[in-house]
Amino acid sequence: MATEFPTSPPAARSIETQRFDTPVPYQQAFDMQRARCGEIEAGRAGNLLMLLEHPPVFTLGRRSDPNNILLNASQLREKGIELHYVDRGGDVTYHGPGQLVAYPILDLSQWRLSIRWYLRSLEEVLVRLVARYDLPGERLDGFSGVWVRGAKVAAIGVGIHNWVTFHGIALNVAPNMTHFTHIIPCGITDKPVTSLRQLLGDAPPMNEVMTAFDEEFRSYFLDQPPS
């Protein structure tokens, strides 16, 4: 006897993952995010998770204080670090090789229309990710990002346009940590920045961390009740 299948299965939420094996220039990655946002808003594309590294770059949010960058233009050139103003919240951030950057381009109308919920969700994904390495990730009241033993291991800064997300998170796996000494990250002077390498003594391979992030991200977001 034939098995009866439901005639109309519930519409499945899906997230496509796009991984980059070589560092993607900041502007190029930004243009790709905005293009995908436009496609999603127009109903021509679905959710996307971009996983990549950037070449060295300092980024300033709209509310950033330029005095939080402690190098002048010629010193930046000398060190090969770019500077970008970007449309996200948050203050000065460093991105560079050895740091996992994840840009989720999600239509939040499929989850919840809440910026606060989305920020907390990204933190939860990161807490679960560092737990794989037996690290106690924490949220700190009044500061976004994820912290381990009082030091920031991952930064968060998002943009939302018509409830489609862009920008995202940056997790320090094994970046050149001296570059963080040239800025006051997120305008916070008395809180140190750390990396998985500093916390573990040895860094897991970037490829492995990308896969782990992808798995934790998908399992969190695909498990959430639909809106």
């Binding site: 948050g90 968060i156 943009g159 346009h161 018509n162 920008h167």
Partner: peptide
């Protein structure tokens, strides 16, 4: 169309 852009602590969003 985007009328004005606002930021909270860690998020930027536009008001149509």
């Amino acid at each position: 169309d985007d009328l004005v852009e606002l930021t909270t602590d860690k998020a930027a969003f536009s008001v149509p």
